[in-house]
Design a protein around this nucleic acid. Sequence first.
DNA 1: GCGCCGGTGTCATAAATCAGTCATACTGCT
DNA 2: AGCAGTATGACTGATTTATGACACCGGCGC
Lengths: 230, 230
Amino acid sequence: MAANILLVEDEPGIQELLKFNLTQAGHQVTAASDAEHALTFLKSTLPDVILLDWMLPGMSGIDLCRRLRSDERYQPIPIIMLTARGEERDKVLGLDSGADDYITKPFSPRELVSRIKAVLRRRAPQMTDDPVEINGLRLDPASHRVVGNGQPLELGPTEFRLLHFFMTHPERVYSRTQLLDQVWGDDVFVEERTVDVHIRRLRLALEPSRHAELIQTVRGSGYRFSAEVG
Amino acid sequence: MAANILLVEDEPGIQELLKFNLTQAGHQVTAASDAEHALTFLKSTLPDVILLDWMLPGMSGIDLCRRLRSDERYQPIPIIMLTARGEERDKVLGLDSGADDYITKPFSPRELVSRIKAVLRRRAPQMTDDPVEINGLRLDPASHRVVGNGQPLELGPTEFRLLHFFMTHPERVYSRTQLLDQVWGDDVFVEERTVDVHIRRLRLALEPSRHAELIQTVRGSGYRFSAEVG
DNA sequence: GCGCCGGTGTCATAAATCAGTCATACTGCT
DNA sequence: AGCAGTATGACTGATTTATGACACCGGCGC
């Protein structure tokens, strides 16, 4: 699960407490005390989740949230808003800032951690280590194993990540560029055609259990992982 | 199992009783009558488990628990809260304060001992001295012996701990860093590649009984202990 | 004190595996 | 047929892991 989390919270005590709890839950936490620091940090690093306090000195959490949502680069990052009791939940929701979830103080660390997991599962399923199974093809991130109809399949690191991404995002076409971003990482500079090669390697690896056809070519668009025919 | 236990309990009678029972069960017990004494003790020694009475003079058990949880040094130590009957409502609070378990007075010594064992197992399964056996490979922490298909195997201290960790955490990949943290300890600064060497030594040690293949390399990720093929 | 010894960590090197690129063959579509 | 997009096989440098050797350390007996 181990996610990189940006925590934006001005109150030192709460900041420490949350940082501690999240670290204990296996996450990597960076804390910022206001919107400015948060933005500065975001220029250099993209976290997996952002925890945003509603009340912040200077630019409020809501404003920051809106601003992040309007920037394509930050758009895919899940945001969880931290709100204090008394700030009517409905009101907060009504202001719809584009956050993925809201959580009201006081909350238990346990709840926060599970909300983070939930949000990750929704936005970036390949980050969780839940096993995935489709059509008899099973991939388990924890043990780093792939099994097709009971038969163990061998695949290299990149093919493993590629398959994991596909299995957590089935029935949808991804362009080569999107796959490079998602599976290789945004910062990598690689030929688009390289994707073809790894798709081929993945198909070869899945062939022994007849699962190669789950990887489908969509001419002119990219590739798709699908249990459907065609 | 022999764990070092810090018991924080203000009532002398109960303190004595618990101390006696736990000592009887083979544990090393240190008693503190309040949070201050507990903290003083903790500055010099880190126990394996902390038993914390909910009601304490001065700083309450819950506060102490929170405080301990906010200190990185004490973070990994399991805490069991002792609560009186009728404080049921506070049970949730106790858990949210970061305690690992709670137990309601009055309780039997037997129950307490088994909860301690359970908590240790959860936090650090390799700390208990229950024998582990997988695929004819048997490791007994109590006697510090490893036997493969009836044949005694010789392994050094580090290899023993490594194998113990693996056998208590099978079917899961661990990175070199994780293994260093878990088997060597967080405070050790050792080259990551050192893990490779010990993996090799462990494999050599397991070879005589053909158990070397239980230690599997997952390229790009780390190592895995598994009874499965591949 | 001295040398032996098992245990550890580090390194250099070999071996294994992988990633990315390219040239070329193939495919479907107009 | 011609074109654009894809598949495939081969190649090479790079990365990752395995292995053997070695130096260091603390304990121990002499």
